[in-house]
């Protein structure tokens, strides 16, 4: 079985760096990172991940915009997305169709145990 790939999109380099370190050392995943939301689609096309961890509030494009682009791409349409949010309230998702409904949210700061559990449940087998 090949190593499963995760793409982490977050504008905070320390977050992407540490998520990569933690998920690779304790989860056995191969992790790609992207700090520029504008490059997220290209990064996803290049890595074709089994799951994407996507920050909601980013400068320029936000998580909802990025998710819409990913959903419009035939290769990435079915890739599961877990949103990382700094806000506990659902208000942050107001007005974004992609952010409402059945999508999964994890509140920052994410507990590593909870993160690994949620990733394990959602990652494409």
């Amino acid at each position: 079985m090949s190593t499963q790939r995760i793409l982490v999109v977050d504008d905070e380099p320390s977050v992407t760096r540490n998520l990569k370190l933690t998920l690779e050392t304790s989860g056995g995943y191969e992790v790609f990172t992207e700090n520029d939301a504008g490059n997220a689609l290209a990064a996803a096309r290049a890595s074709l991940p089994d799951l994407i961890l996507l920050d909601v509030i980013m400068p320029g494009l936000d998580g909802g915009d990025v998710a819409s682009k990913l959903r419009a791409d035939p290769l990435l349409r079915d890739t599961p997305i877990i949103f990382l949010t700094a806000l506990v309230s659902n208000k942050e998702t107001d007005g974004h169709e992609m952010l409402t409904g059945t999508n999964t949210f994890l509140a920052k700061p994410v507990d590593i145990g909870e993160l690994k559990k949620t990733v394990g449940e959602h990652i494409r087998r």
């Binding site: 977050d10 905070e12 320390s14 977050v15 540490n18 998520l19 370190l21 933690t22 050392t25 304790s26 509030i57 990382l84 700094a86 806000l87 506990v88 920052k108 700061p109 994410v110 507990d111 590593i112 145990g113």
Partner: peptide
């Protein structure tokens, strides 16, 4: 509160991941 949450939770996320790493 929203601004504080956004600005504080990212550094906290880094700290949390770091402590989790060391705990593991």
């Amino acid at each position: 509160a929203t601004g504080v949450a956004h600005e504080m939770k990212n550094p906290l996320m880094t700290l949390s991941l770091g402590t989790d790493y060391f705990l593991l």
